[in-house]
Write a protein that binds this DNA or RNA. Structure first.
Length: 683
DNA sequence: GCTCCTCGAGTTCT
DNA sequence: CTCGAGGAGC
């Protein structure tokens, strides 16, 4: 009897897996739903009567399991790297040129590329051992991800068992989990019906579903999957060999019943890449899922090894992305904000609009000239884009949609003859783009911004003193200058809104802990015009003490590297002002800073005289930590790449700076290379 | 005097 | 990230 049940269980699983494959991968159902349900129920009953036959990879287990406490971390055997991006034909051509140089091909010799759409989903890796699915994980930072095995079991397009000869003992398949547009619509409709929160786009919905601790919820969400590559492969049967090209690898994965992009193709050279991109773009709207571009890979796998990697991105592949998504909305108002230096910055208040997955309500218009140049007026319909995929930007006005009668154009002098915050006169100097409030620190807006700057992380680093708190402190008249912060007491703070006893105590402690910061931080914190972080460091190093800096006349200031007449005058004027001297004296009494020693500019260390640029996210070091290491080693951490840059340290999702580095042939290192450089092991 | 490079300053949303 | 403008080098 027992053997009979086992045989039937195996038979049922094969039938159901086959039906799943036809339905979810080939999109061609072979049996009626009722028949499918009958098979599944029969299997459930058999498994219930013979628990010893139940396996985690049975099709009955695709409905989800009990919730997890949290996700376990998984270290990827082979890192999951990100791709460099190209946004133009020129960048694609540059990629092709680098490939041809790397492969030592001549002008006429075109490279063969495997191309496919870039799915807008989440990268995951699937691990199979002896043909059975054992683990699935998210990409995470590329080296470590989260174990989402239970959730991935519910994705019907992912095979739980690999059939056939030639399956390696260990096989890792990489691909993208996504949600089809129709499933996304259905999910949101159901959420709306129940009055629940909806997802902004299919990608967010897929991400939210994959991160469910309760895989039964994931099961109800209908995720899809497409494979695009391999990770670790071990224990290939003798007589078998892995395919020699990427396209053949994809065919092999398709034969193993993984879903692969139906649009995948093999093309020749840049012309082939661009033709594919255009064609794909034309079909984009009609696809059942969102894509954000195309992926190009050198087809011959042997060439991948020859080309290798730059930092954390392969040199043999690139993602060609569509331009940032643009949306239309209307300008409800043009307000101004008063910044730390008194600058009045016009801001467009927009009718909320979804652009690239987030709701945008504000967009800076920079200054009066910019508003005039773009001719933005209240009531206008405008095109909004997320510049560099982050900061919203008004691209242009749709003039055809302008309402009549024509609204007045933006006139700073007329609208804001006085500061909207303090009522002091606003002036715009000849030749400057910015209009400024003339009230200095007497203006509450400037005072608030100055205090926020003083407390900020790169300045005095007072933890927990954010904009909301500063706002209250200034409005209640508790704080007028930075020096007042050091006199704040626990009872005063406890009176404020949303300030529990504990947080008041924390803030008092944080303020106390910020005493004795190095001179450079303190000089930066003062907020002297034209004195940023870098200049503050130069000044602190050159003068050593605040008294020496305050005593310096313009001529003495000009002796500091990178200080010219404008900066020198600004510094001298700041210290000449009586109010500022009073505040500084109070800060001295409070012990806010600690003087250092005057030192010559040239430092020693393995990076002496070298200029480095950081970009992207490094695996273990934060940007500030990396910067501190560079400076401690005598190097300079610059903000942008130029011919004078010695090294670019690139992490994950590096952007334009990495591209610039490649263009200028600057050496690019990853974090490991950087650490070697610091130890002097690399030259 | 011109050009290239850096730095400063302002900015959005989660 | 991007723009504007100050500084330095040619």
């Amino acid at each position: 009897m027992r053997g009979e049940a086992e045989a039937r269980v195996l038979e049922l699983r094969a039938l159901i897996d086959e039906a799943n494959y036809n339905y979810y991968v080939l999109d061609a159902p072979t049996i009626p739903d009722a028949e499918y349900d009958r098979l599944l129920r029969e299997l459930q009953v058999l498994e219930a009567n013979h628990p010893e036959l139940l396996t985690p990879n049975s099709p009955t287990q695709r409905v989800g399991a009990s919730p997890l406490k949290d996700f376990q971390q998984v270290t990827h055997a082979v890192p999951m790297l990100s791709l460099n991006n190209a946004f133009s034909e020129a960048e694609v051509a540059a990629f092709d040129r680098r490939v041809r140089e790397g492969l030592e091909k001549d002008e006429q010799d075109e490279v063969e590329y495997a191309v496919e759409p870039k799915f807008d989903g989440l990268a995951i890796t699937l691990r199979y051992e002896d043909g059975a699915f054992v683990q699935g994980a998210t990409r995470g930072d590329g080296y470590t991800g989260e174990d989402v095995t239970a959730n991935l079991r519910t994705v019907r397009a992912i095979p739980m068992v690999l059939a056939g000869e030639g399956v390696p003992r260990v096989l890792e398949v990489r691909g993208e989990v996504l949600m089809l547009r129709r499933d996304f619509e259905r999910l949101n409709q159901a959420a709306r019906d129940k009055g629940e929160k909806t997802f902004a786009n299919p990608r967010n919905a897929a991400a939210g579903s994959l991160r469910q601790l309760d895989s039964r919820i994931t099961a109800s969400r209908r995720l899809s999957f497409f494979a695009y590559g391999l990770g670790q492969v071990e224990g290939l049967p003798p007589e078998e060999a892995l395919p020699a090209t990427h396209s053949a690898t994809m065919d092999w994965l398709a034969a193993l019943r993984f879903p692969v992009a139906p649009q995948r193709r093999v093309v020749q050279g840049v012309a082939g890449l661009m033709a594919f991109f255009t064609e794909l773009g034309a079909s984009r709207e009609t696809l059942p899922y969102d894509i954000d571009g195309a992926v190009y890979k050198v087809n011959r796998l042997a060439d991948h090894e020859r080309l290798g990697f730059v930092a954390r991105a392969p040199r043999f592949a690139i993602a060609h992305k569509y331009p940032a998504q643009e949306e239309l909305t209307t300008v409800e108002a043009i307000d101004v904000q008063v910044g730390r230096t008194g600058t009045l910055t016009p801001v467009a208040r927009l009718k909320p609009v979804f652009v690239g997955g987030v709701t945008v309500t504000n967009a800076t218009l920079h200054n009066e000239d910019e508003v005039r140049r773009k001719d933005v007026r209240v009531g206008d319909t405008v095109i909004i884009r997320r510049a560099g995929d982050v900061i919203p930007e008004v691209v242009s006005v749709v003039l055809e949609r302008r309402l009549c009668p024509t609204p007045p154009s933006f006139d700073m002098a007329k609208l804001y003859p006085v500061c909207p915050v303090c009522g002091a006169p606003v002036i715009r100097l000849e030749g400057e783009a910015a209009a400024r409030c003339t009230n200095g620190l007497a203006c509450p807006a400037q005072r608030k911004e100055a205090l926020i700057h003083f407390a900020s992380r790169r300045a005095m680093d007072i933890d927990g003193l954010g904009d909301k708190l500063v706002e209250q402190l200034v409005d209640k008249g508790l704080v007028h200058t930075p020096a007042d912060l050091y006199g704040l007491t626990h009872p005063q703070l406890a009176d404020l809104e949303r300030m529990a006893d504990k947080s008041a105590a924390n803030l008092v402690a944080a303020i106390a802990a910020s005493r004795g910061r190095p001179l450079a931080r303190f000089v930066f914190a003062l907020g002297i015009r034209h004195v940023g972080e870098q200049t503050a460091k130069d000044l602190a190093r050159h003068f050593g003490s605040l008294d020496a800096l305050m005593a310096a006349d313009e001529a003495a200031l000009l002796a500091v590297p990178d200080v010219g007449p404008v900066v020198a005058a600004s510094i001298a004027a700041f210290f000449a002002e009586a109010h500022n001297r009073t505040v500084i004296e109070a800060l001295r009494q409070a012990g806010a800073w600690q003087d250092g020693e005057a030192r010559p500019a040239v430092a020693a260390g393995p990076l002496a005289g070298k200029t480095l640029v950081l970009t992207g996210t490094l695996p273990t070091l934060s940007r500030d930590e990396a910067k501190a290491l560079i400076e401690a080693a005598g190097g300079k951490a610059a903000g942008s790449v130029s011919k004078k840059t010695d090294y670019v340290i690139a992490g994950a999702d590096a952007g334009s700076k990495l591209a610039k580095a490649q263009e200028l042939q600057v050496t690019v290192l990853d974090e490991a290379g950087f650490m070697q450089l610091l130890k002097g092991e690399l030259n």
